[in-house]
Amino acid sequence: AEDTGVRVELAEDDDGKKEAIALKLWVEDPKKLKGKYKESGAIEFTFELEKETPEGVAQEMVESGFFHESDAKIVGKSIRDRVALIKWRRERSVLAGP
């Protein structure tokens, strides 16, 4: 995944079955953000893999005051990359089978 300066990682082990998974997001390189970023630490949230969109969560983070509107896209992309990796790994483990 492209280094957006915003890091997103699993906040819990993924058993491959959970519909909602806990993720943790933090800014590693504030210089890559367009808007003014007030250091807020790592933000943990739950993401419903099949129902929700990364962009929707990013917008909620903007509305909650974590990021400036101009950074919604970069935050959404960072979440999207991690979610895609989670789904890819799940598909691979299904294909690998018992």
Binding site: E28, D29, I43, E44
Partner: peptide, 27 residues
């Protein structure tokens, strides 16, 4: 370390805690 919480109007809970130590880039 204590974790702060922000609940969005749509109901999602955001829990804020210190950035994982090992992941801090040297700025």
């Amino acid at each position: 370390s204590c974790a702060a919480q922000v609940v969005h109007s749509a109901g999602r809970r955001f829990i804020v805690s210190p950035v994982p130590e090992s992941r801090l880039r040297d700025q």
